[in-house]
Write a protein that binds this DNA or RNA. Structure first.
Lengths: 204, 204
DNA sequence: TCATCGATACGGTACCGTACCGATACGGCA
DNA sequence: TGCCGTATCGGTACGGTACCGTATCGATGA
């Protein structure tokens, strides 16, 4: 959508010959996401991002039309699949690893989702971007773990608890700061999986 | 904090003789909470509340120092204990009823918590008010259900799943809109309790 | 050579919190 | 009971602040 041609071999020339290197662009994205985490979506300003990255407002507005599109671009550039590599051969251990991984980026992504939680209800594009970058890849990976466990016969396919595992994991991750005043770390998440998720699945 | 002397017999005279009746005050509170749900905390303005309630900004500023204190007052006035009455004699049924109740006010309170979720991380008073009005009463009531179940011998006191029941319930309630795009209604919550919570507790 | 850079100035908009305005209704007092 | 002083009412105007998004500038580097 913006400057660099992200796909294919680097034969394609950027439509505008922007002087903004990919590293520089990542600075902009990191800055705006961090400001969102700290101040909330509404309180983030283009002027603030420009100030902290020592660029001019003009530069930002040349690349992105306005704040919403800028934020969406930043989210899209941050897309990662953190559960992707997990495959230990045991569903229980897969879930423990997922819990540990979730507990690790808990601070960053939970704060981001928290800060954008309401804004996404108003801006459809933002909502879509959030789902595509923070929610769906992880949920899909989680369901893949579960599917493999079912295939191996560790859990019956009609176990009703299967459906709720993603909601449980992300829900607990998200609500912990509200209930206990601190983020859910790896230890907490692993304990939760072992105490509540695995028993409901009939594991352990 | 404001006009009426809420406590004791009505002997105490209000310090300022405000013409704002308790009903009128509730209109202000309802308006600001609804605007928070719809537009988010940051986007709520005193001017907007004044407009929708057809009062003047002066009136609001006479009663409350500024927006944060106004919102805190509104939250405090809305304090309710929705799980309080539940006591069927069976832990499983108590949890089902709690799930049903939670699914009913899901729309209102979840949206409110969603909208205030980030603001509460910045304003300690707001955070305290939110915890005291939306979180702690319900968590306490939930833990009371569980304690009675343990006392009746339905669950062993050292069952590790006990600790996570509140986090599960409120977590799932809160994350459902993000995952599935709709609020968790009574049916969904009851199904969740039966599929995931009760089995982990060894019930049913 | 010339488009993009950083910097800055600009008009427009929105809201803050205060101050002032008559109008009004409460509440003490004859 | 009936009146009058007065504080609060709704309405509005105000200065101050902050940010938006645009325009313009000289400098810079592909």
């Amino acid at each position: 959508m913006t400057s660099q041609a992200a796909d294919g071999p680097d034969t394609v020339v950027a439509s505008r010959r922007s002087k903004i290197t990919p590293e520089r662009e990542r600075e902009f994205f990191d800055a705006v996401l961090e400001q969102i985490r700290e101040c909330g979506y509404d309180a983030v300003t283009m002027e603030g991002v420009a100030a902290t990255t020592r660029c001019s407002k003009s530069t930002l507005y040349r690349q992105w039309k306005n704040k919403p599109q800028f934020v969406v671009a930043a989210l899209r550039a941050n897309r990662r699949a953190r559960f992707a590599g997990i495959d230990t051969g045991s569903l229980a251990e897969d879930l423990r690893q997922a819990a540990r991984a979730a507990g690790q980026w808990s601070g960053k992504d939970t704060r981001l989702l928290q800060a954008l939680g309401h804004a996404m209800t108003q801006d459809p594009e933002l909502k879509t971007a959030l789902r595509e970058t923070l929610v769906e890849p992880e949920v899909a990976a989680l369901r893949e773990l579960l599917r493999r466990g079912v295939e191996r016969g560790e859990v019956r396919a009609d176990n009703p608890a299967l459906e709720y595992v993603p909601a449980q994991m992300f829900g607990v991750l998200r609500i912990r700061p509200v209930l206990d005043g601190e983020f859910a770390g790896p230890d907490y998440m692993v304990r939760f999986v072992e105490a509540a998720v695995l028993p409901a699945l009939g594991l352990d």
